[in-house]
């Protein structure tokens, strides 16, 4: 109980845990994703969601969107650690900038007949989910939106015969005319 406080106890500070979305522009060279993920696992940071794709093919630039959690100090450290990596161009904290749009795409498979099918279709319409596959006993819906909306949709589908879900993870972009 009377353990002396040492450097290892630093993280026990009672600072609140926050969730932040980071956009990272990287040189699309082999191993760059492994490098970013290795940073998170090697230094004990959390990844809630990770999305990556090449966005400027000619310049070999990819954009990685990471949703992470931690105290503000930890999140600042994550940004600094990312920023000093050789293949990283820029890191922007979309949450801190306060002017970002976050979207996720999910495909939701349902199995059922009768009333459940009708109810599912009605909810899908309310959520602007599209039917992208159908059989006489199943649907696949495609839905986009922020994570909370998708979570809510999935919760509603559960009693109606939810089979499985595939989600892309969060992609984020800033509002207004400026680029990142």
């Amino acid at each position: 109980m009377n353990q002396p406080a040492s450097a290892y106890f630093m993280d026990e500070r009672k600072d609140p845990i926050e969730t932040h979305t980071l956009s990272v522009l990287v040189q699309n060279e082999p191993g760059v994703l492994a490098r970013v993920i290795g940073l998170f696992s090697g230094r004990g940071y959390n990844i809630e969601s990770l999305t990556v794709s090449e966005t400027e093919a000619q310049k070999h630039v990819s954009r990685i969107t990471i949703v992470t959690t931690g105290t503000l100090a930890v999140i600042q450290q994550i940004k600094n650690q990312l920023d000093r990596m050789v293949p990283v161009y820029r890191v922007v904290d979309m949450t801190l900038s306060g002017r970002s749009i976050e979207r996720e795409l999910a495909m939701v498979k349902l199995r059922g007949v009768g009333e459940h099918r009708v109810e599912a279709l009605r909810l899908a319409e309310a959520f602007r989910a599209r039917v992208i596959d159908a059989t006489i006993e199943s649907f696949v819906f495609e839905i986009t939106g922020n994570s909370a909306k998708i979570n809510q949709f999935i919760d509603l589908m559960r009693p109606l015969g939810l089979v499985e879900v595939s989600r892309t993870g969060v992609a984020a972009i800033g509002r207004g005319p400026e680029g990142m």
């Binding site: 002396p4 406080a5 040492s6 450097a7 290892y8 600042q76 600094n80």
Partner: peptide
């Protein structure tokens, strides 16, 4: 950590200036 010892009692009354080429060393 070999320099600071206990971090919550490290040089408690000072203003600290830190020159470093690596931004991740700042406030780590």
């Amino acid at each position: 950590d070999r320099i600071t010892g206990r971090t919550d009692a490290f040089s408690p009354n000072s203003k600290k200036i830190h020159i470093d080429i690596d931004p991740s060393s700042i406030n780590k």
